[in-house]
Amino acid sequence: MSAPVLEVAGLAKAFGGVRAVDDVSFTVVAGELLAMIGPNGAGKSTCFNMLNGQLSADAGAVRLLGRDVLGMKPRAIWRLGVGRTFQITATFTSMTVRENVQMALLSHRHGLGSLLSRASARHRNEADALLGRVGMREQGDRVCGVLAYGDLKRVELAVALANDPKLLLMDEPTAGMAPKERIELMALAASLAREREVAVLFTEHDMDVVFAHADRIIVLDRGRLIAQGEPAAVRADPQVQAVYLGSGAMFGHEVPA
């Protein structure tokens, strides 16, 4: 196994006495898809927001390729090679699909200080190539504000890949999508990750998606990491079953082969 891309050790965060994240440690390696699951309020989003710098942590360490990134601003962490997609898509609604990707490329190449060149002419082919990879090339000239939700998720994926990330953080990548779309999007993300040797950490509610694509799974409950390992092992873990009992989310339906 290669050196971990992301190393999280003893991460903790409390909000007014409530321990949202409590002593969480895990690692992700290149080309690996790690799913973070857990019931609502388990601390997944808090954990995510600490990883990319949106939230400060109370304790612990986050190392990216061996470098401590805790306390850095999101934009600085991004520059170290972390791509991100959001639970509720965040795109530039007044720009076209292509321009959204171009912005990320421009930022990656430190080209935003230019006052007189035309933004829409910069890195056009590269943007189209990325869009082609997520199946959005034909829609490059459409304005993001009018896109369907599933398409926006794809755009976000293309944007997240623009800086050749070593790590991709995907918060609920398939939330709000139709079941068929979900599988397709996740399959796309998985193939991209493997092809580019990107480490992927994602949270997900849909267990079909999780068990179909995750290489490993970590389970959070009330801020604590209660289990981690291969999907089959996690599924068999009695503690995990207890947490998910009643919600039915994990065993409500069969997992496709």
């Binding site: 990319n52 601003k73 999101p74 934009r75 600085a76 991004w78 520059r79 991100r84 959001f86 965040a90 795109t91 530039f92 609604t93 007044s94 720009m95 912005m103 990320a104 930022s107 990656h108 944007v159 623009a162 800086n163």
Partner: peptide, 10 residues
């Protein structure tokens, strides 16, 4: 348009 996304792409 999106301060969140802008920050997230540096």
């Amino acid at each position: 348009d999106s301060p969140l996304r802008a920050e997230a792409i540096g």
